[in-house]
Nucleic acid binder design. Structure first.
Lengths: 246, 246
DNA sequence: GAAAATAGTGCCAATTCCTGTCACCATTTG
DNA sequence: CAAATGGTGACAGGAATTGGCACTATTTTC
């Protein structure tokens, strides 16, 4: 019996039976009384709340609120969760968002330090707007998760993004732009890019982007993002989108 | 140097430099070549994708996509994340929500089985509506995370909920109701409860609830929740809320 | 008040597991 | 072929975990 699996077995047993005695636990997991006591201490250090009553009829009791999960997430998954919670908070202060934040903070802390810096830089390129009134979404496509790695690479390495774009009128074209920012106007997302061939900024709706890739060896400088929360109102972009100009 | 911190150091070093040789790694982390090889094996078992090229100019390469985080979350935190992502998806199909779901699925799987069942039952009591047009939120209060444990206990154990309520006109009262459902109409949340003393269903805005507790030993039967997504439109509730009748 | 039951701690020997060394193999590059 | 590199197996020594014991503190029962 491994240390890890023994800890799991102890937590499991404590969860099943309301109150358990140390000797019973020792018998169950096949370890000595002393070892089980050490394990209990380790579990408490890990944050499990285990009450103990001494004397006859005493024993150990696990506070079910303190049961914890140990999930292993990939970086894109963490990032998706971060975006979700951030977007939700922008939609208004939902209940329990503090709790969700606390959870995310823990997840972030578990990442390598340099990865956290990357994430924050990427998040800095993200502008999240207010809830938009419902609009016609009949032609809204789907966004594929495969976008994320390419976007992350391009934003962090300041590389050109190359992708297929289908505009409001259904015309297809292959674009190559310098990614400057991402805008979230639930339920729509936009990429703000500087198009060198047109020498202008362009907005692209994410659901119309496909076959995206970061182009190696095309380092560029970040320009001033033509988008300030309080200067350029989101409503303008939305109006242009509705008019088919995005 | 601990096993754990050595693993971290190796992952970090592999992330920094594109391709690294085992002997260089051994020198860097202050362990022997054999130990580093064992560590690499362990990391691969943990899911890290580490490519290796033998021969001159070879070395190790870490697939950045495979970097993982190992966060330890409490059950309320998991629940808050679940609610966040569910609410966000109801707000429209945001990008990367599939990724967020995948992450949450992993987190859920890491919970004890009976805890998952509880979570699902609790989520079943949750009705998530469409985005509501912006409305006047000047009087919107804040919701405290301390609500969640009491709510969970009450919903799962079918216990009465007792709390202070401040209605639209600012009148305070202490209520005791059978919790039937929760409604999310971003950014507002409502509790649907059966009030025995009034023999009727009542809606309570979450941000007006305080000092909440689940009352022990008051088991009740779930009644038919007077709320069907397609029958009773959310707009009706919103209209009543605006008129100060909630 | 005494006895029994229970959690908890300190100490030390025994055991188990981790680490380093070495020999060796397989593959690629020049 | 030789050099450079990742990878595996065996084994001795060292580090960490475990078990046993004596002991303390508290609560319940008689």
């Amino acid at each position: 019996m491994n240390v890890r699996s023994r800890h799991d077995a102890i937590v499991c047993s404590l969860r099943r039976s309301g109150t358990t005695k140390i000797d019973a636990l020792a018998l169950e997991v096949g370890a000595s009384r002393r070892t089980v006591l050490r394990d209990i201490g380790a579990l408490r250090d890990q944050g499990y709340v285990i009450h103990s009553d001494v004397g006859r009829g005493g024993g150990l009791q696990l506070d079910p609120q303190s049961v914890q999960t140990n999930a292993r997430l990939s970086v894109p998954e963490v990032f998706a969760l971060l975006i979700s919670v951030a977007a939700m908070r922008a939609a208004g202060n939902l209940p329990f968002s503090e709790l969700a934040d606390a959870g995310l903070a823990k997840i972030e802390k578990a990442l390598p330090a340099d990865r956290i810096r990357d994430l924050r830089r990427f998040l800095d390129c993200l502008h999240i707007g207010q809830l938009s009134p419902l609009q016609d979404l009949s032609d809204m496509g789907t966004m594929v998760p495969e976008l994320l790695p390419a976007f992350e690479t391009a934003f962090l390495g300041q590389l050109m993004l190359r992708f297929d774009y289908r505009d409001a009128k259904g015309r297809k074209s292959r674009r190559e732009v310098e990614p400057q920012a991402m805008l979230i106007l639930p339920p729509l997302w936009y990429l703000v890019g500087w198009d060198p061939s047109r020498a202008d900024f362009r907005h692209f709706r994410m659901d119309r982007i496909s076959r995206v890739e970061a182009v190696e060896g095309t380092r560029f400088r970040h320009r001033h993002v033509p988008f300030e929360d309080d200067v350029c109102p989101y409503s303008e972009l939305q109006a242009r989108d509705r008019a088919g100009h995005v």
